[in-house]
Design a protein around this nucleic acid. Structure first.
Length: 634
RNA sequence: GCCUCCGUGGCUCAAUGGCAGAGCGGCGGUUUUGUAAACCGCAGGUCGUGGGUUCAAUUCCCAUCGGAGGCUCCA
């Protein structure tokens, strides 16, 4: 009698197979299409080669390139193919590691020079040869001793074998290339249909700057040619949207060598900024936040109490005046705590919400700076909520409601939530953490929104919830965060008086919605590619005259629009209509008004929208329409 | 901070071990224009900065500042 096993598929259906069947055969039994697309198989949460035999009852999922796990297998295999090509072209190079990453893969090489751009082309070409040869990935296991022998010419691999926990390290061979590797891999190199090497950089062995410096090549691969084209397109699109470039072109901001990491915002950039702030102020006032302003510079004593002087000093701008140490604030919390502590608070005053658009300075290392995304001076839309334990859940819900409103209003309809739990190095008791994490979970469950858990990613002082907004081309950006803090209230001995007339320790919730306003503005520029919605557009409308004869009328109309709180400019240059239209379009002004003899006579305006469509309105109708759009934040 | 690459008028970009060039923009003039670039002329650069090699350096070398990408970091 042939032994049978039961395989449970993702849709919970069960199938019986004879023992010793391979993943590939199971895929074939399910469907031809699936068998063709299959890259690997997931058996009880372990990802394995398609050729692995299944010996026992299990949960099983066939992985294709549609899943993240399937992509990882493809990318990891691609890294091997890349190493194959590099080894052939540069035999002296020693191997590091070659894992899949979020978007593609890399392989690190130990060598005495670096790769030139032409090298990448050569390597790519060589890779294609191996892909065309459709070499099978063969897995072989060896004893540790044999493995050590096999990698003896590879110093970094030797180090890895020493550290391996497995008794029988596995190797994968494709064509001429063999690499120490846990796997899994796609069945053969031919499964990779398109590959592109993207860039080179250097990296440290095991990410430690004390270790050897390795040359890293990044690449990406796909199972369809078309997907590569789409990907390259997306990269191009992202370059076009680059906020540093658009910021300059649209006169929104600039960066100067005199202030690295501290971008200058121009008048037009500030209009967008101020619209965001106006919205923020209004919504926070409605929700009873106390909006304050605290000093930029405070004495060392405060930072000693907060712990920043001890733990964060190398990132703080500090200086001496009158023989005393001062520091520019890297965070707003200590200031807000001082405000809270100014007087006694009854439990009846809780939750007490102190908010500030707080400018903070942090001395980030020079190599990490980038436009508005990574800066040394930024403005946090910060708030600190002092509350009792039984109020945390409701407060978290309130914050989520505000985040949701903010993101959707501004045009980010998609976002996802992540919950980070207790890290190894942390303060507070296990019970405190359990409770806190549970409270956050409860709040998230109540919203009905999906969330992902990042175990061990919390701050040392408490768990946190992060909000990641998705932009127009699918990239995600962490903006909002809600963090529970067990640390600061303790350090500052913050208390309130309870209904028992005793002192109690409040909980502290830190939260931001935009995160850094600078960074949020950068994301906004890239999201809209500079084509801001009307309410955010620095110049909402530009008046263009057909000839200079209409200039007086144009200036009068501008005044009328400004009075109606519509941001308007007149292009007063003596240029052709076509030229003025072109310039306005390039500057991404959403609504163009043309005034010719006809319009002036009839008191109408001809409107050109971003899509180039023309329409004529009475002036009064036009103003009404604009006001409605702006009010509705369109 | 480390690695790789980059730095030429306001902007985008050429060229070159031996006088630095274009387009856009600016300025002056002509044109008064109907929906993405009218025409003519002029001005504008110590080739990021400092040092070195050379008869001669924007070009080659070193340092430095700034930028891009990556590493690392983001208590």
């Amino acid at each position: 009698m042939v032994a049978e096993i039961t395989v449970t598929l993702p849709d919970n259906s069960q199938r019986k197979y004879k023992k010793g069947i391979t993943g590939k055969e199971i895929a074939e039994s399910i469907g031809k299409r699936l068998a063709e697309d299959a890259l690997a198989v997931k058996v009880n949460d372990k990802i394995l080669d398609l050729s692995r035999v299944i010996e026992a009852d299990c949960k099983l999922q066939i992985l294709t390139a549609d899943s993240k796990e399937g992509k990882s297998v493809l990318w990891h295999s691609s890294a091997h193919v890349m190493a194959t090509a590099v080894k052939e072209l540069f035999p002296k190079v020693k191997l590091g590691i070659g894992p899949p990453i979020d978007q593609g893969f890399y392989y690190d090489f130990l060598m005495d020079h670096s790769f030139a751009p032409e090298d990448l082309e050569k390597i790519e070409k060589k890779m294609l040869e191996h892909i065309q040869a459709n070499e099978v990935f063969v897995r072989t296991e060896f004893s540790k001793k044999e493995a050590t022998e096999k990698v003896k010419t590879e110093p970094l691999k030797t180090e890895l074998v020493k550290e391996l926990l497995e008794d029988k390290p596995s190797f994968y061979t494709n064509g001429p290339f063999t690499d120490l590797c846990r796997g899994p891999h796609v069945p053969s190199t031919g499964y990779i249909k398109a590959v592109k090497l993207l860039k080179t950089s250097s990296a440290y062995w095991k990410g430690n700057e004390k270790n050897a410096q390795l040359q890293r090549i990044y690449g990406i691969s796909f199972v369809k040619e078309k997907q590569l084209a789409e990907y390259l397109n997306m990269i191009q699109e992202a370059e076009k949207r680059d906020h540093v470039k658009l910021g300059k072109e649209l006169d929104l901001l600039s960066v100067h060598p005199e202030a690295p990491g501290m971008p200058f915002l121009h008048a037009k950039g500030m209009i967008i900024w101020n619209e965001l702030v106006k919205f923020w102020m209004k919504e926070h006032a409605k929700r009873n936040y106390k909006i304050v302003n605290t000093p930029q510079v405070m004495k060392k004593d405060l930072w000693i109490t907060s712990g920043h002087w001890e733990n964060y000093r190398e990132n703080m701008y500090s200086f001496q005046i009158d023989d005393y140490d001062f520091a520019i604030k890297p965070m707003n919390c200590p200031g807000h705590i001082l405000l809270f502590k100014e007087k006694r608070h009854s439990y009846k005053e809780l939750p007490l919400k102190i908010a500030e658009l707080g400018i903070v300075h942090r001395h980030e290392r020079s190599g990490v700076l980038h436009g508005l995304f990574r800066v040394r001076k930024f403005t946090q839309d910060d708030s600190h909520i002092f509350c009792m334990e039984n109020q945390i859940e409701q407060e978290v819900l309130n914050i989520i409601e505000l985040m949701d409103l903010t993101y959707k209003t501004i045009g980010f309809t998609n976002y996802h939530i992540e919950l980070s739990t207790r890290p190894e190095k942390s303060m507070g008791t296990e019970e405190q953490w359990q409770k806190a994490e549970q409270t956050l979970k409860n709040a998230l469950e109540k919203t009905g929104k999906k969330y992902k858990i990042n175990p061990g990613d919390g701050a040392f002082y408490g768990p946190k919830i992060d909000f990641h907004i998705q932009d127009a081309i699918g990239r995600t950006w962490q903006c909002g965060t809600i963090q529970l803090d067990f640390n600061q209230p303790e350090r500052f001995d913050v208390t309130y008086v309870g209904d028992d007339d005793q002192k109690h320790r409040p909980y502290l919730i830190h939260r931001v919605i935009f995160g850094s306003l600078e960074r949020f503005l950068g994301v906004l520029i890239e999201h809209y590619a500079g084509n801001f919605p009307l309410w955010l557009s620095p110049e909402q409308t530009r008046i263009i005259t057909v000839s200079d004869a209409q200039l007086p009328a144009a200036l009068k109309l501008k005044e009328q629009l400004l009075e109606n709180e519509i941001r308007a400019e007149v292009d007063e240059r003596t240029e052709t209509l076509g030229k003025k239209v072109r310039d306005a379009q390039l500057e991404k002004v959403p609504v163009l008004i043309t005034l010719g003899e006809k319009e002036v006579q009839e008191n109408t305006v001809t409107i050109r929208a971003r899509d180039g469509k023309l329409s004529t309105f009475k002036v009064s109708e036009f103003i009404e329409w604009m006001q409605k759009q702006i009010k509705e934040k369109k």
